[in-house]
Amino acid sequence: MLLPTLVFQDSVRVRCCPRHWRFKYEDYKETAEWLLSHTKYRPEIAVICGSGLGGLADKLTQFQAFDYNEIPNFPQSTVPGHAGKLVFGYLNDKCCVMMQGRFHSYEGYSLWKVAFPVRVFRLLDVHTLIVTNAAGGLNPKYEVGDVMLIRDHINLAGLSGQNPLRGPNDDRFGERFPPMSDAYDRILRQKAHSIWKQMEQERPLQEGTYVMVGGPNFETIAECRFLHKLGADAVGMSTVPEVIVARHCGIRVFGFSLITNKSVLDYESQEIANHEEVLEAGRLAAEKLEGLVCKLVATM
């Protein structure tokens, strides 16, 4: 009996059979080879720019940009504040590739597709991934505009079985059971703290735990209280799938969250989170974030 064919938002046709749920190694290789044949750049460092943080790519010199819809197998970004461009160039003499806009499960993508570019970066011989995001501050000590280095994360979806590594493992990318206790590189975090002190910023550089939720709605007060009690300092709707896949591939990771709003923990509060606030906070913090990333890349 023939199995029915399904068409998803990302236009990938698959059959209702587990072995066809995700791309094969050859599909990642096709995308990587297309990029290598269309650019002279051979990046060592990749940066995923979160909501409102795409201006980092403007710091690249001698850049070359591709729209996501030009690149074979690449998903499309549909969220305001995500330009949907892959940009190659130099940052402090280091060859980099930057994503101006990422993908999210709430856009309709499966988690393995959200993290699809990371495996492509591995095939481009990228050795370091910098992940950035806009997040709500759960830690009461955090203020809007603070930068939090990600020391650890809580994969809330993963605890219920939703993981970008779910399904058959391809040993060409990594082992079946990758550890996550060292997901965020300690040395790069130490360097970031030193750089921040040199930048003489008014607020301290925070460091804490990021928790990912599905979105797209912002969290309820009860959910924020729950996440805070779990030990999370900041909450967002991204980042964790890319980090898991990067570590599975052997890519070292550095990550930070821009605190764009304070999560509401008090039922008497009149504050209401919104995406426009997130983008505005990103715009206001752009200069210090760009300075931090530029100086950090120079040390790699």
Rank of each mutant, 00 (worst) to 15 (best):
R283Q: 09
R172G: 03
L165S: 11
Q162V: 12
E30N: 12
L86N: 12
D233R: 03
L6R: 15
W21T: 08
Y109D: 07
Y68C: 14
D233Q: 07
Q64T: 15
G50C: 04
R19Q: 14
G55D: 11
M98P: 02
W21A: 14
G137N: 10
L284F: 02
V126L: 07
M148C: 13
D93T: 14
E287C: 00
G282Q: 03
G81V: 02
H193M: 06
Q190W: 00
Y68P: 06
L3Y: 04
L159G: 01
R15K: 13
D93I: 08
G137M: 02
G255A: 15
S194V: 08
H228Q: 15
Q190L: 08
C17I: 13
R13C: 09
Q76C: 01
T209N: 04
H38S: 11
S51G: 09
S105T: 08
F256Q: 02
R15Q: 15
H82V: 08
G250C: 10
E287K: 14
W21Y: 01
A286D: 14
R203H: 09
T299H: 02
T31I: 03
K197S: 14
L91S: 11
S181Q: 11
A134C: 05
K94D: 00
A135M: 09
Q76L: 13
D182Q: 12
Q9C: 08
E30K: 13
A285H: 12
Q76V: 11
L284Q: 15
E242P: 04
E287R: 13
F121V: 11
M180S: 07
D67H: 12
H20V: 06
R19W: 06
M300P: 00
L258G: 04
L279N: 06
R102N: 06
L292Q: 06
R252G: 01
K29C: 10
L296N: 04
R186G: 00
N139V: 04
L86W: 09
G136N: 06
V97W: 04
V245W: 00
H248S: 05
R247Y: 08
D182M: 10
M199A: 13
V240I: 10
A222H: 03
E276A: 12
G208N: 11
K113M: 15
L284K: 15
N155G: 09
T39C: 03
I259Q: 05
E277D: 07
K29H: 11
L279M: 06
A222D: 06
F226V: 07
P4E: 14
M300F: 09
V293R: 04
L279G: 06
Y142T: 02
H104K: 00
I130Y: 00
E44P: 00
C49Y: 10
L279T: 12
E202W: 01
G250K: 12
A115V: 01
F226T: 10
A286H: 13
L188M: 12
G231S: 03
F88C: 11
V79H: 04
R15N: 13
N155W: 04
F173D: 02
T220S: 14
V47M: 01
I71N: 13
T239P: 05
S77G: 10
A298S: 14
D27A: 13
V213I: 14
R166I: 05
V47R: 00
E277W: 01
P216V: 05
L53E: 03
K191A: 08
V79R: 10
I259C: 07
Y184W: 08
V293F: 08
